[in-house]
Design a protein around this nucleic acid. Structure first.
Length: 801
DNA sequence: AGCACGCCGACT
DNA sequence: GTCGGCGTGCTC
């Protein structure tokens, strides 16, 4: 009898391996790898979901195999490629394989479990429990007493528990109209009607002209074409059409993009397209890094290389950061490739997401555009993978499995033998360094299309007397620039760099920021402890009451909110219409797009916001960009602080001005001489790269060193520390002298939900034993998980806090 | 995760 | 004695 190897939906270390099940006769040849099945697991009658990883003839298991209960899918939902990927991913991210398999699928395909109490005897207690119902669902709303009663009755065999594995993914069944008649027959039928049968005439006319679109959903007919239900019923009675059930299509995303055509390429764009096209045709899994200044036309390169992939019969996958996945962006792709495109939005409901996934899986589309998780799109015959804004931290998932979409893309490129294109105006140091070493193929695009001028950038030194005298956050220079812009009826963007709202100490007199003596990162103010702390090495010192540099008492703990800035703007420019965009105003679905829409159609003069306004937006009337506090990201206790600041400022500066209007950028800072700010002002990535590489080299950071972050959490602080030191000793024993171990040190918010967090950072160049050791540690500490210990391993973390 | 087994204390 | 607390170990 055939045997299936199954990964069960029990996310623990002990069950993180395949379990064997027999395949019942009736399911022979039905059960194939990649399919979801329902299996009994454990001593009770518990039923759970599992993924079939392999099918074989013989079992290695000594005990008696249980049979698979049923199949959940009729066809596999994961391809061989995805199953293979799950092994690699689980290993790379130190997470459970079941979690990896699940993140590859739309969330609705995650099993939902229900438990019901079924009466077996007719005793008063059973009656009382069920209150006359035939069954009772066990939910967490039941009281402890009830739970106790259920357990007791179960022991007495008075009730039974039944387990139901539910598949949330249900395609909506809809009624749709179709016909067997051809156009001539329909028109004949129409002519045979009485002239007052207006609805029938309209219906038949419609059908005759939309034969290619059939079957068409009844609610679409009703809503979009005003053809009533009764008219359809009448026509059905007269055998002119048929009403059928379709399992299809909630209406595809509401995008009706205008058809666009290829643009004329610049010389630089042409070079890029040619090189990538060659790799596509030769099926060469090469990675290209396009370093192209803002406005150099990277998107057109993407589009034309996608076209190339389609030409040679392949499909293309394009990843875009979530915040850049704006209608503007999507329309450009859909405009070029029409309904061959599937878009995996965050704006989609989980049902819609599933529908898009299904379209891809069935091979109905050739191009997939989406954010991070779209890298798992079930797209076959991939001929090209594009990652736009390659440097974005959001490509790395923050929780388990902590994968980086960029690495997954590289993995898929090898399997699919296709090139990967990484694009950015400000590549991550890692990628740019790899290009330097020849691992990636560097393509530089240095010229803006249409010879747009670079914006005029003005750096405002906030330490100057006139600026520090101002009450609010707007320097006279920025105020004047805003006034000028408003007078011209142009638009302005005001960026509040609020990332570093965790307070750090800065002197308003001289700009001095209190830093750690060992790590060259700023110390963080811990209000609860009343101390300044370093998150890297654990160094701490008392909170100063005057500036250690200039003795001034004007020191502050920094953090400014958008609402506050909005009030200031309103007070300064009472007539200006200000739109605020931050986490508060964009929480509702679609709110993000709505605000941009409103600003784009010039219904506001000033757009005020955080990071999210900096990405890939093109507003022709924007001639001024003001950055309130360029430094806050700079002062973060994170070695990527300079890089993040440079990226943000470069990008936001690129937003100002167009071909006909030269843009103006005002950057307010307390660190006007910092290279990240100066280089961003000049849009000079290469200079920044060299400088930052030097600093990373000095401080032994990425990309010179690999980084792994291990965090320990427990309710008891002493226990957490004890565990942390144990962990450190464990690591030390298997690492070479060259590895650098930092910590344990408390995380930025050292206590979250009553748990204490400590972290250890490993920096290393070559530690062949580390990976295995970490897996061992994970295994060993698993038993402690029940005692409230949590240990998390983050390979190449994006931020350290 | 969920369930059984098993070993301790406090109750009919 | 026995009911029930939860610590330990296993699930094909």
């Amino acid at each position: 009898m055939a045997v299936a190897e199954i990964i069960v939906d029990v996310p623990t270390m002990q069950t993180n391996r395949p379990f064997e099940y027999s395949i019942p006769e009736t399911l022979t040849d039905v059960v194939v790898p990649g399919m979801r099945v329902e299996v009994p697991f454990g001593r009770g009658k518990r039923q759970i979901q599992g993924f079939v990883m392999a099918v074989k003839e013989e079992s290695n298991f000594k005990g008696k195999l249980k049979p698979i209960t049923r199949v959940i899918d009729l066809r596999p939902v994961l391809s061989k490629e995805m199953l293979d990927l799950s092994y690699w991913l689980a290993d790379q991210t130190y997470s459970f394989q079941i979690s990896c398999l699940q993140t590859m699928l739309p969330s609705v395909m995650r099993a939902k479990y229900q438990q019901f109490v079924i009466p077996k005897a007719d005793t008063p207690e059973v009656k009382k429990l069920l209150r006359g119902q035939t069954q009772l669902e066990i939910t967490n709303q039941l009281s402890d007493e009830e739970i106790r009663l259920i357990n007791k009755l179960r022991k007495n065999q008075q009730v039974d528990i039944s387990y139901v594995v539910k598949n949330k993914a249900q395609q909506v069944k809809r009624q749709a109209v179709t016909t067997d008649l051809n156009q001539i027959q329909l028109l004949e039928a129409k002519n045979a009607l009485r002239s007052n049968a207006k609805a029938q005439i309209k219906l038949l006319d419609f059908l005759a002209n939309h034969l290619n679109d059939l079957p068409i959903e009844m609610n679409v007919l009703e809503k979009d074409y005003e053809i009533g239900r009764s008219a359809i019923k009448t026509a059905e009675k007269n055998q002119l059409l048929k009403i059928i059930e379709v399992t299809k299509l909630r209406k595809p995303v509401g995008i009706d993009a205008k058809k666009t055509t290829k643009l004329q390429l610049t010389a630089e764009q042409k070079v890029a397209v040619d090189q990538i096209s060659t790799a596509i045709t030769q099926q060469h899994p090469e990675t290209f890094l396009i370093e192209g200044v803002t406005g150099s036309g990277k998107t057109e390169v993407y589009l034309q290389t996608i076209e190339k992939a389609l030409q040679v019969g392949k499909n293309a996958l394009m990843l875009v950061p979530e915040i850049s996945l704006t209608p503007q962006m999507v329309n450009r792709v859909v405009g070029r490739f029409g309904d061959q495109v599937a878009v995996l939005h965050s704006g989609l409901s989980s049902g819609e997401r599933y529908d898009e996934w299904t379209r891809i899986e069935k091979g109905e589309v050739k191009v997939v555009v989406g954010a991070r998780s779209a890298v798992f799109a079930p797209l076959g015959k991939i001929g090209l993978i594009i990652i736009d804004e390659e440097h974005e931290a959001s490509y790395k998932q923050d929780d388990n499995p902590r994968y980086n979409a960029r690495d997954v893309a590289l993995w898929r490129s090898k399997v699919n033998k296709c090139p990967v294109v990484l694009g950015s105006a400000t590549p991550s140091l890692e990628s740019r360094a790899r290009a330097e070493k020849g691992v990636y193929h560097l393509i530089r695009m240095t010229k803006r299309i249409n010879n747009q001028n670079l914006p005029h950038v003005e750096i405002v030194d906030m330490r100057d007397a006139e600026n520090s005298a101002v009450k609010g956050d707007f320097s006279p220079a920025l105020q004047a620039a805003l006034q000028k812009t408003l007078d011209k009826h142009d638009q302005a963007i005001v960026l509040l760099n609020r990332r570093g709202y965790s307070s750090f100490m800065m002197c308003r007199e001289c700009g001095f920021v209190l830093k750690c003596p060992n790590c060259d990162v700023s110390l963080t103010y811990h209000k609860d402890l009343g101390k300044m702390k370093c998150h890297y090495c654990g160094h701490e010192e008392p909170v100063p009451n005057s500036c250690p540099n200039c003795r001034s008492k004007k020191i502050g703990f920094y953090g400014t909110g958008t609402q506050n800035i909005e009030q200031q703007l309103n007070a300064l420019f009472p007539k200006a219409r200000v739109l605020r965009m931050d986490v508060d105003t964009t929480r509702r679905k679609g709110a993000h797009a709505k605000i941009l829409q409103k600003f784009g159609s010039h219904q506001a003069d000033i757009l005020l916001g955080t990071q999210m306004i900096a990405k890939g937006l093109d507003f022709p009337d924007v001639t001024l960009v003001g950055v309130i506090n360029a430094d806050t990201t700079l002062s973060l206790a994170d070695f990527r602080a300079s890089e993040r600041t440079f990226q943000l400022l470069t990008q936001v500066s690129g937003r100002a001005g167009r071909a006909d209007k030269t843009g103006h950028v005002v950057i307010q800072t307390y660190n006007p001489d910092h290279y990240a700010i100066k280089d961003a002002a000049k849009q000079d990535y290469e200079t920044f790269f060299k400088q930052e590489m030097y600093i990373r080299h000095q401080a032994n950071y990425t990309p010179y060193y690999f980084t792994t972050l291990i965090s320990v959490a427990n309710k008891d602080e002493g226990q957490t520390l004890k565990q942390s030191y144990w962990l450190k000793r464990q690591l030390q024993s298997s690492l070479s002298k060259d590895a650098i171990l930092l910590g344990p040190s408390p995380t930025m918010i050292s206590r979250k939900q009553n748990k204490y967090y400590y972290q250890i950072i490993v920096k290393y160049k070559h530690e062949p034993k580390l990976h295995q050791k970490l897996l061992e540690i994970l295994n060993e500490t698993q038993a402690d998980a029940k005692k409230g210990f949590t240990i998390a391993i983050d390979n190449e973390p994006q931020h350290i806090d």
